[in-house]
């Protein structure tokens, strides 16, 4: 016979069991089998031979992979700060109960509901050097078109602009909901305390929503390290690999060259990078909070 406590715990377990099964089957199992797979030289037809860490050592000497890692970090460095800061200012401006603010909240959020296919289609038409929207405008003033998508120095910046445009809706909404939690009377006290607007931002608003800032930064890091659709659909990683991120590298190796073991090893490295960056941010943020207490 089970004790009442054990029975209660077993009952609790039953409630989470369905999700746990799906979680283990679709997330943990692929993760572990991916780790296993990365130690094999394998292709899609089932032939696999154990090679130990050879895939990893090959990766670390593969200039295409290293370029993809560099591209990815560059992209994250361009997009994450922008996606942490621009939505914050949008939220600060739109955090009021007017119709205009509600309208613009809708406008800025609307891009988030589009699929990557539509986003890239729109932006290709905007940025194309041959008859694109921007090219037409600057052509009207007599300038040569800017090769946004074919200049290796510009292509990642273009990807970042596209991504920020696409992704800023959700962080803005998160900031808005955080801002609405801040008690209004604190701002009133600040007004009576002669607080200038920037000091109100740095001394009252930002400390009050710091958890949300951390959440947005971690979430955007996780998302933007997995950049894939935009370069895949617009440039296929070109020119010269200048817009190839890690996930596109994994896709090409795995599903074009069918080198599954090698792709799995690259996936593990990406997983490790995201995990480390996330944990680092989490620890920094929680330590600061601990000190603030």
């Amino acid at each position: 016979m089970m004790s009442p406590k054990a029975r209660r715990e077993f009952g609790n377990f039953l409630f989470v069991a369905p999700y746990l099964c799906v979680f283990l089957w679709l997330l943990i199992w692929p993760l572990i089998s991916g780790m296993g797979l990365s130690l094999f030289k394998a292709d899609l037809f089932g032939g696999a031979s154990f090679v130990g860490f050879e895939n990893y050592s090959r990766l670390l000497q593969d200039p295409v992979f290293l370029q993809a890692v560099g591209n990815t970090f560059y992209f994250v460095a361009l997009t994450v700060p922008a996606l942490a800061i621009i939505p914050l200012f949008l939220a600060l401006m739109l955090n009021r109960a007017t119709r205009t603010a509600a309208f613009f909240r809708g406008v800025f959020f609307s891009s988030s509901v589009l699929s990557v296919t539509i986003v890239t289609l729109i932006w290709r038409m905007v940025l194309m050097s041959d008859g694109g929207f921007v090219a037409n405008i600057i052509g009207f003033f007599g300038f040569d078109p800017i090769p946004f998508l074919s200049d290796p120095n510009l292509v990642m910046i273009s990807m970042s602009i596209i991504t920020v445009w696409w992704c800023l809706g959700l962080p803005m909404m998160l900031y808005l909901s955080a801002l609405q939690q801040v008690p209004q009377d604190i701002y009133e006290a600040a007004a009576l305390d002669n607080t200038p607007w920037w000091k109100q931002l740095t001394h009252i608003t930002l400390p009050a929503i710091s958890r949300t800032v951390v959440l947005v930064v971690i979430m955007q890091c996780v998302l933007q390290f997995q950049l894939f659709g935009q370069p895949q659909l617009i440039t296929q990683g070109g020119p010269n690999g200048a817009s190839r991120p890690i996930v596109l590298f994994i896709f090409e190796v795995g599903f074009r060259r069918w080198d599954i073991g090698y792709a799995a090893a690259a996936s593990q490295i990406l997983f490790a990078i995201i995990l480390m960056v996330t944990l680092a941010q989490y620890f920094v943020a929680s330590r600061r909070e601990g000190r603030g207490r």
């Binding site: 604190i186 006290a189 009252i204």
Partner: peptide
């Protein structure tokens, strides 16, 4: 002013 809910700056 002294506010009903104190309105102290929590941080």
């Amino acid at each position: 002013m002294v506010f009903q809910h104190y309105a102290l700056y929590p941080h």
